[in-house]
Nucleic acid binder design. Structure first.
Lengths: 228, 228
DNA sequence: TGGAGGGGTTTTCTTTTTGTAACCGCGAGA
DNA sequence: TCTCGCGGTTACAAAAAGAAAACCCCTCCA
């Protein structure tokens, strides 16, 4: 899941981005309103985290322009406690949720999870495909009851495929939602990660879940959704 | 679906063409305005993607000449964000849509889908012919509920026939829409692919869907019955 | 400060797909 | 019925896509 973080204070931005990446989110950072609008226009984010206090256009204005441009993306507003404003509380700026600073990081994560869930028509917290189970809340994966240790990127990729289980997912989609703007489309990084996932998820199991559709992308499904 | 991509920057062109081909579009590339006009004159494209910034004739001029020549083909303009122009926004250059660079690839795909759909009065995402189902979004094909594995070219050909189910499709049409300009009209490649499709789609089913009309082309229809 | 691990790159190897070509067989018209 | 030609079939070569392996670099932490 890919997030745009709009925060002008560099150290806060760095810290949050780091924490989010640790949670396997792909994060792009914008430090002002215009940059944020530009990024949001270019990429398809799953969530925007928007600090209200920004140089130039403030958070309210950014949110307004986003909505005016037809963007459906969920927006989480951040505001200082002493600057809470009726507009924020009423969420009538077009935002979907807000959080007061300073906040506990786990609290932020909880809000993010809730918004993301809402954004994809309430997908369950635990995704099951055959005997593969992904607990997206605990970020825990098990295959046939046995725990599978995945790195953050591996997890993010698997979760993205799992949420679209049974569909052929184009590599452009993967690049878009699992990696951030620094992804090099000519690298074979996706193949490399698919291979790492196969080793951890499919190796030693007779039913493989990760299938290649040459010229199209990858599918996560038992049997690949057709008899080969 | 056949697309003419007009883009002079080689790496951008290569990247876009690759991504589009991944989505089973047949893509021709032109690197300047005159080349584009020539190609568009010779071939029948379903869509033209036109960068405005071109050496020689620019995108506006190319579009104008295209329209002057009576071309109805949908045109999607690409423009740099900092070069947005009233002419672009007003779409009064004869273009049907525009997109600012750099853009998100999925966004491009969405625009392409929208334009292609607009041109053909709302094509559905799922095409059904008898017990053959093509889910064009998930890129899955099934016959009688059973998944059918098709390569990229096979899929493109079947989709083209399916969209024109019941019609006799001339091999010249097939060559134009499923292959690109490098197609050798003296080869029997189409026959080869029809055969491959028959093996995967019709074999083992009593009602055949792929029928030959000698001297005319092929039809995808149950029983091959159609109004003459 | 050094080593382990995660993320990313590069290179090489393997498999699949695409395209070519030669040959076969059937159907329509003579 | 015979023949010609269109299309079908099959085999194979070339090219592309993907898999695998090895390697690099950076960060974090003991």
């Amino acid at each position: 899941m890919r997030i745009l973080l709009v925060e002008d204070e560099p150290s806060a931005a760095r810290m949050m981005a780091k924490g989010l990446r640790e949670q396997a989110y792909a994060v792009d950072v914008a430090s002002d309103g215009d940059g944020a609008l530009y990024q949001a226009g270019v990429n398809d984010y799953d969530l925007v985290i928007l600090d209200i206090m920004l140089p130039g256009k403030d958070g309210f204005e950014v949110c307004r322009e986003l909505r005016a441009g037809g963007a459906q993306v969920p927006v989480l507003m951040l505001t200082a406690l002493d600057a809470i404003d009726d507009r924020v509380q009423g969420l009538d700026t077009g935002a979907d949720d807000y959080l007061t600073k300073p906040f506990d990081f786990r609290e932020l994560l909880a809000h993010i999870r809730a918004l993301l869930r809402r954004g994809q028509n309430l997908q369950p917290d635990v995704i099951k495909v055959e005997d593969l189970e992904m607990d997206t809340r605990a970020r825990q994966v098990r295959r046939g009851g046995r725990g599978v240790y995945l790195t953050a990127k591996e997890y993010a990729l698997l979760e993205y495929l799992a949420r679209r289980a049974g569909e052929v997912v184009a590599r452009s989609d993967i690049a878009e939602h699992v990696w951030d703007e620094s992804f090099d489309p000519f690298s074979n990084l996706i193949e490399v990660y698919i291979q790492r996932l196969r080793r951890k998820v499919d190796d030693g199991h007779s039913t493989k879940l990760l299938h290649t559709r040459r010229g199209a992308g990858y599918v996560l499904a038992p049997g690949g959704d057709f008899d080969v």
